[in-house]
Nucleic acid binder design. Sequence first.
DNA 1: ACTATGCATAACGTACCCTTTATCTAATTC
DNA 2: GAATTAGATAAAGGGTACGTTATGCATAGT
Lengths: 129, 129
Amino acid sequence: MDPGRRPPRLGTPRRLVTPPTELSVHFEGLAHPTRLTIIERLASAAEVRVSELAEFCKVSQPRMSWHLRILRRSQVIRTRREGREVFCRLDREAITAHMRSFMRLMLAKGDGEPSPDLTASLLSGEAVQ
Amino acid sequence: MDPGRRPPRLGTPRRLVTPPTELSVHFEGLAHPTRLTIIERLASAAEVRVSELAEFCKVSQPRMSWHLRILRRSQVIRTRREGREVFCRLDREAITAHMRSFMRLMLAKGDGEPSPDLTASLLSGEAVQ
DNA sequence: ACTATGCATAACGTACCCTTTATCTAATTC
DNA sequence: GAATTAGATAAAGGGTACGTTATGCATAGT
């Protein structure tokens, strides 16, 4: 039979369940293919204009502006205004700092020694992929 | 004939506007504070049970299951079933591979050599943060 | 002053993220 | 076989990420 039908759901009662951290925000900036393309473009030049990035990534100019805002918030890029043009460049120092922060978090050991494998392979170019 | 006609809003065309890449999916896995907490917990032990992770992160069991699914898809963790328990561990090799992939992308130069600064400071523990 | 340009923002719409509670499945235990 | 336990999945819903076009605003050029 089917004695008791269950009551309807109520959904999530509250908001803001898990506050973002600086590191999670940084990774949010990296977690989109278009933004990775932006980074790739910025890696091959010191500074790139916004409209050039939009054309390179094949997205509209407002969309690019929005992506750049996220990348700025994530501390992935820095922007500089010159007249009516805005130039973007990678914030390599901040990126490095966050990567090191993540590495430290991932390699943290309770009592054992830190595994040198990861660090070594990260640089030695061990065949992965 | 209808000179000032404004085209109707269509919103997002359809699915697949920007297909995710393997690297962007990997960063998606890292782009959440709870999942970073999971990684932090997994870093201090070889293997951790799902329910223990849920308790540690103070989230419900279904939500933990969902986060673990994302982490598995992102190639951040691997899971192993033993009876009715599931043990999780970090996939350090995959994480390392993706980090190296990102470093390569970020350090790519048109013709110059890769700057050793970043790589060096990443390991030497230069004061950042 | 007027026009053109480069970027930002607003308005709009769809899909997905993220969370909950309830239910389901599989394995262990009695 | 029945009860218990560990995870996974379903259902529901609020919030937001992400894409578009239209508009605004400041600067450069004429």
